[in-house]
Write a protein that binds this DNA or RNA. Sequence first.
DNA 1: TCCGGTCGTTGCGCAAGTGCAATGATCGTG
DNA 2: CACGATCATTGCACTTGCGCAACGACCGGA
Lengths: 230, 230
Amino acid sequence: MHKLDESLLSPLPPFSRLSPAEIREILDEATPGRYPEGTAVFGEGLPAERFFLLLDGFIRVVRTTREGDQVIALHIPPGQLFGIAPALGRDTYPATAVAASESIALGWPIRLWFEFAKYDGFSTETYRTVGARLGEIHARVTELATQAVEQRVASALLRMANQSGRKTEAGIEIVFPITRSDIADMTGTTVHTVSRLLSAWERAGIVASARRRVVVTAPHRLVVLSGAAK
Amino acid sequence: MHKLDESLLSPLPPFSRLSPAEIREILDEATPGRYPEGTAVFGEGLPAERFFLLLDGFIRVVRTTREGDQVIALHIPPGQLFGIAPALGRDTYPATAVAASESIALGWPIRLWFEFAKYDGFSTETYRTVGARLGEIHARVTELATQAVEQRVASALLRMANQSGRKTEAGIEIVFPITRSDIADMTGTTVHTVSRLLSAWERAGIVASARRRVVVTAPHRLVVLSGAAK
DNA sequence: TCCGGTCGTTGCGCAAGTGCAATGATCGTG
DNA sequence: CACGATCATTGCACTTGCGCAACGACCGGA
């Protein structure tokens, strides 16, 4: 069992103001975990015993309704904390976290949260994260309440392309596997409608898509479709 | 100018663990404000210079889209803090706060937030508030994404009745004025559809409504309609 | 008391998007 | 390499709920 390197944490906002010694301490308390695609890191409603930092991969935050419909709230990119129930004054997880692609994360027992909170910059930065997520969800409500399906799907693709896209010569590729069904769960539609839209956009040269892969080839045109035009 | 009474704050969660002397200090820093129905306490995107505690009335948190559609995110009842941008690591307000009915609130300059954060229980409790609001908005996303209009309107009425209803012999009355248009803004529909639903429910004896007033007379039947059935 | 503004209701036609169903493509596994 | 599972596509019929339009009720102010 080899030691984790300090450079893993030092550039990340929650830890950036900490001394190497402090980072060392924090790392020594961490338990790394590997989560194959599709596995849950934790489940909605379960007691929040650990919180996590995503090192690699992507985490999908999902809520499931009583009827079994699932809604994808957001995707978390590497470098961010997640499962931070204590920052919300909760002792259970508010949603389920699933690995969207194979993921590596560090985990700490929840009691350490309150220790870390004493480090300079740690709480400030994590609350900023919470604020950003709240803002994002808020934007989703607005979107769902006011925009048509086509615009919502366009927005969802753009959001993913911006937050977790990789530039290739063909355009911006969304780096984790995503099915039509996932997109439907993010936008409150059906697989069918998403499929039809993507087909149409593919014909129009706006996106290129393969099984579980989407590349946005003409972001500007998607922006127009999303209704953010002005 | 008379002094505010300490009993105003002492029973409220963020302050409940403070000594009378500490509460006295906090009160001395506060500026009370009166907001007639319909006036804005602060606007979306403006620099967050103050944060507030609602003493009486109701605050409606609203977001307005570029196209001018407005979405009502939530209602804040008396006793809660609002405009707490710093708790989200922000320096501008994320939404507009409008008085849903005549309201009285205490305001403090934002720099005091960081002083208050030192008081025992203050931050814990406010983060709990943030967590609860996040949970509520999250639930709204789920609702908007999975439920039909009728169920969403039923849920919205129930939520308001639960959180800010007053029991009367006729049923549960929502205590602040609410128009069909407001309900439409909460559920992402149109005035028309809301009006039709309320008319139907009135005929069925589930609600009673007057201009800007709604009384839920048969909550259980509304619960069934909301799809929370099992 | 009249008048303008806000709020609410209802009928009708239409379009967006769903539900259903059938088919096909692709992947991983034994 | 064959099979089952997952993922994707597409046509068609149907329903929900929106847009439009017109009207009516109620409230507050001059």
